[in-house]
Nucleic acid binder design. Structure first.
Length: 494
RNA sequence: GUCCCCAUCGUCUAGUCAGGUCUAGGACACCAGCCUUUCACGCUGGCGACGGGGGUUCGAAUCCCCCUGGGGACGCCA
């Protein structure tokens, strides 16, 4: 569909038959507009996902806008974090990102249009006066709002005189937000006041900048957190003042911490990149996030393609959802189990690198992933559980060694070592046959030999099937570790 | 304080708009059992919810009102 987006217009002009089709293709434009002031947290990522899904679902465009008008709080690092997070998740955007900090000319121009039309005015009220006004309102237990002191003064401040520009909000009537998620929400204009659109330093305020941006970027659908719902009537009035059509809004509820509290931006555990570090798969993170507040019947597991195919704003929940790390882990496990060995190995590579272990794409390594994937919830867990295939462990698990590395198991280990030494066809099948014979000869249970061997080879009592574990550890290493175990038992006795 | 939003198992949710098929379904987690050479996977079963009160109706999780609880907004932050 990318190609259609790029070539849509020219094809549309050439071919009448497809014209109508491409009008639909070009109609949806959504956007994600984070402010670069810290971690990109989970709630933001989910609104980005919903916007992206919506655009992809309707073959529209998805745009990125960095809201960095607050120079004091915006950072380069945070901007990079946004790019990295989206890139890791595979949430791609269709045009170059828009930076609000580079669009001040457009905001001035927009303000001038309103000023010239008498829809905005200069205000010379000082910050102190405004603060006092607000404090007074709070004291009188009424909604804090500007008292319109400068509204009809027709001020023309000279250069150098500090003045803000305010929007002349309608004083009567209602504004109805027709919302894709919240249905229609009605506000009285009397509840709204004349918001500042340009600060004394000339910079635009949020509610004004976004309206100019939505218009310039041609956004048709604005999907964002419901903390913006109360801003929406002001923005709608602004759209009207510009004589522009109002985009379709969709206000999605926030995401709460597992304890049901508001997520804090400072919390590291709410950053998606942290989830990457913990070994979660981007597809699984998307799957988890999409189900948080949205559903498609009883389906729990979605590929990205399915999300796009089924995503539907009508099924977005109106109530906030709490994060459940255990369900994330389960979903990640499910996605991990669907990976082919080659894919799994490739995705695990960076995590092996972190531990200084080199893994190439060999048949053996693929098989290691294959036998571990149902036992691992995350890539980190997979790597942690597989190190003994690559490097020798430092020490036996104390309890495991005490229980299984004993004088009783010693002869069995020695005997197995002998049969493995002469084994020509090194495969789990033939290894299994050797163990089976041993078990038969000594009239013991399979576990009587499997557990001591497991401890000898892996250091602990947990591993995949013992035959395949032996195979994958390799003949040379297996014999070496078996010998060490026998020695260990001897030194323990003496 | 004012305005706005929300409310089904511990959690994510289906069901709510078009009231009956809901003694409320699924999933995660938890518990028990089966499978089994350990750990997992898998399978079977169990525990577990319509916040409260009024209406409307033959019938309410579903519609209306009130209460309670939670959240948001009310910035020269975004």
């Amino acid at each position: 569909m990318k190609a259609a987006t790029v070539f849509g217009l020219s094809i549309a002009f050439e071919c009448n038959e497809y014209c109508c089709f491409f009008v639909i293709v070009m109609s949806v434009v959504t956007r994600f507009a984070p402010s670069p002031t810290g971690n990109l947290h989970i709630g933001s990522v989910r609104t980005a996902l919903y916007s992206w899904l919506y655009a992809r679902r309707y073959q529209g465009e998805f745009l990125l806008r960095i809201e960095d008008t607050d120079r004091a709080r915006s950072t380069q690092e945070a901007t990079q974090l946004i790019f990295n997070s989206l890139h890791w998740l595979g949430i791609d955007y269709d045009r170059e990102p828009v930076f609000q900090s580079r669009r001040f000319d457009q905001y001035y121009a927009g303000a001038k249009v309103l000023l010239d039309a008498g829809k905005a005015y200069y205000c010379t009220c000082s910050k102190d006066r405004l603060d006092a006004l607000r404090a007074d309102c709070l004291e009188r237990k009424v909604k804090p709002r500007y008292d319109n002191k400068c509204r009809d003064l027709n001020l023309k401040p000279k250069k150098g005189t500090p003045a803000t520009v305010r929007f002349r909000n309608p004083t009567s009537g209602t504004v109805v937000v027709e919302d894709m998620v919240q249905d229609s929400v009605e506000y009285q204009n009397s509840e709204l006041d004349d918001l500042i659109i340009l600060r004394t330093d000339g910079s635009p305020t949020y509610n004004f900048a976004v309206v100019v941006d939505e218009v310039d970027m041609g956004c048709t659908h604005v999907i964002r957190g419901d903390d913006h719902l109360n801003n929406t009537p002001r923005q709608i009035n602004l759209f009207h003042a510009f004589g522009k059509s109002v985009p379709q809004f969709g206000h999605v509820p926030m995401i709460l911490s597992p304890e049901g509290r508001k997520l804090s931006k400072r919390d590291d555990d709410v950053s998606v990149l942290e989830w990457r570090n913990e070994g979660y798969l981007p597809g699984a993170v998307l799957n988890y996030l999409v189900r948080l507040g949205w559903s498609h019947g009883d389906q729990e597991l979605f590929s990205v393609g399915e999300m796009i195919e089924y995503f539907d704003s009508a099924q977005i929940n109106r109530s906030p959802a709490s994060l459940d790390p255990k369900k994330l882990t389960w979903i990640n496990h499910q996605h991990l189990m669907k990976l082919t060995p080659a894919e799994g190995l490739e995705k695990a590579k960076p995590y092996f690198d972190n531990r200084g272990i080199e893994v190439d794409d060999s048949d053996r390594n693929r098989k290691i992933f294959e036998v571990q994937q149902s036992r691992s919830h995350t890539l980190v867990e997979f790597v942690d559980k597989s190190v003994y295939f690559f490097t020798d462990f430092d020490a036996y698990d104390e309890k495991a060694a005490a229980k299984h590395l004993t004088t009783t198991s010693r002869p069995l280990l020695i005997e197995l070592m002998q049969s493995l030494e002469s084994l020509e066809n090194w495969s789990s099948t033939s290894i299994h046959a050797e163990i089976a014979q041993l078990v038969e000869r000594h009239k013991v249970g399979f576990g009587a030999i499997a557990q001591p061997v497991r401890v000898a080879l892996t250091g602990s009592t947990v591993s995949p099937g013992i035959d395949v574990t032996i195979e994958l550890i390799g003949q040379e290493t297996a014999l070496k570790r078996l010998a060490s175990a026998v020695n260990w038992i001897e030194t323990k006795i003496s």
